[in-house]
Computed example of a mutant assay.
Amino acid sequence: MPKAQETILEIDRSALTHNYNYLKSKLQSKTKFLAVVKAFAYGNDAEKIAKHLQWLNVDYFAVAYTSEGVALREAGITKPILVLHPQIVNFKTIIKHCLEPSLYNTNVLNAFITVANEEAQTNYPVHIKFNTGLNRLGFWESDVDYIINKLKATSSIVITSIFSHLAASEDANEADFTVNQIKSFKVIATEFLSKLDYKPLLHLCNTSGVINYPEAHLDMVRCGIGLYGFGNSANEDKYLKPIASLKSIISQIHKIEPNETVGYNRAYVAKTYEKTATIPIGHADGIGRHLGNEKGYVIINGQKASIIGNVCMDMIMVNITTINCKEGDEVIIFDGNNKATDLATSLNTISYEIITSISQRVKRSFIE
C-alpha cells in the first residue's frame, strides 16, 4: 500500500469481500444475509460499502435511522433496507423511498398503519420486533394477539419479518441467557406464525450469534461488526480482516528540555531531554481526549509512540524520543496489524466505539 501523505482512512474492499464470504460460509444456503451499514457503515463509508455488498449479492441492508436509508437509496442501492429505529415523523419519507420500518410497540404500529392508509399503500412491508431480554425496543409476547388483530383490520401493511436482538451472544458466561433468548423468540414466532396465513422471515442472530449459535440462524442473520473485521473474540478475529486503516503523518518534530510542557493546560511535563512529534489528527477527527496523557498511542516505524498531553481538536503530540523517524513519516493509528481492538482494550471500551468515532472530515480512500 502507498504511504500516507495526509490523515486518511483507507478501506480495503478485498477485506470486506473476505469477511462477507467467511460469515456467509457459516450459513445454510437458504439463510439470507442482512448487512448492517448504520453509522456510516461503522465509521467507514456507507454508500460505497453498500454498493460493494450489493455487488456481492447481499440479500438485505439495515440502517438505524431513516436518513441513512434515504442516502443509500439516493446512492443507487436497490436491495431492501430495514430501518431499525424509525421515528414517526419520518414515516412518509420511509414510504417515499421504499424503506422498511421496524415496528416495535403499539404507538409506532398504529402510527405507521395510519400513514400507510393516508398514502394509499397496500401490503407495505414492515418488520415486527420483539423484546426477548435486551430491554431496549420491542413488543412483548403478550402483544401477539393485538398485532394480529391490527393486521386483520388493515390491508395497508404486510409483515416481512419477525425479529429480536441477542443481548450477549459474544459472552460465553452468558450462554444460558442467550439460549433462553433463542427459546423465547422461537416460542413467540411459533405463536405469531400460527395466526398468519403466510410466513414472514425470522431473524435473531448478530455477528456473534452467527459464530456461536448456528441453531439460531433461522431464515436470515444480521451482520455488522463482523463485516468490518471484528469477531468479538480473539479466536474469530484470526479469520476476519479489519477493512479500515487510519493513518496520518508527522507534521513537525520538537526537541524539548526537562520540565518543558506540551499541549493545552501544560498537561505533559518532560522528564528529561525528549523528542515529540505533532500529528494532524485530533478529537474533531475521532481521537477522543480520553486517549491523551499516555493512555493512547500511535505506531511510527513499527514502534508505539504514546500520545502525550491533552488531545487537541485537530492535532495530537506523541513521544518519539526512542524512535528513529522524521517529518513526513507515516503514522498508523490502527490497521490490520495494529488493530482497533487493541486500542479499545487499552481504554476499556470496544472496537465499535473506536471505529465509529472517525469523523466524516477524514478523507476516505478505497483500495483493492
Rank of each mutant, 00 (worst) to 15 (best):
T276E: 04
N301R: 09
V262P: 14
E353M: 11
K79F: 03
N44P: 04
A284D: 13
I157Q: 03
D329N: 14
H290E: 13
T345I: 12
V108T: 14
D145P: 05
L84S: 06
I350F: 09
E119Q: 11
A284S: 14
A167M: 01
I333H: 11
A168S: 12
I355A: 09
E119I: 00
M1R: 10
A116G: 04
K241D: 01
P125A: 01
T160M: 02
P242K: 05
V63H: 01
E353F: 09
G226S: 10
A64S: 12
H85V: 00
N149M: 04
G69R: 09
T160E: 06
M1W: 03
C205A: 12
A50F: 01
V115T: 14
L134K: 15
E118T: 09
L193I: 00
T106E: 15
E174S: 14
S233I: 13
D143P: 15
E327Y: 04
Y213L: 02
D219G: 04
N173S: 10
T276S: 08
I11G: 08
F112M: 07
L56G: 06
T132Q: 08
L9N: 09
G309A: 00
Y264K: 13
A168V: 00
V221K: 02
L204Q: 10
V331A: 10
A120F: 07
D176L: 07
H254P: 04
K32C: 06
A153D: 13
Y104Q: 14
A46M: 10
F33P: 01
A305L: 05
E47F: 01
N348Y: 13
N107P: 02
N337L: 14
S142I: 08
L291M: 15
L84M: 11
G76M: 09
Y198A: 07
Y273I: 02
I94M: 14
S365M: 04
A153Q: 13
I308L: 05
I77N: 06
I300S: 03
S184N: 13
S29K: 15
K247M: 11
I332Q: 12
L166D: 01
N19Q: 11
N235P: 06
K96G: 07
A62E: 06
I249A: 08
L166N: 02
N135Y: 11
A111M: 09
P86K: 02
I11Y: 06
G76S: 08
I182G: 03
V63M: 03
I162P: 03
S251D: 12
M315Y: 12
G229L: 05
D176V: 11
T345A: 14
A189E: 05
T178N: 09
A277C: 09
S169I: 01
G292E: 06
S67R: 14
E74Q: 15
E174M: 12
T321D: 00
V158R: 14
K247D: 07
L103C: 12
R73E: 08
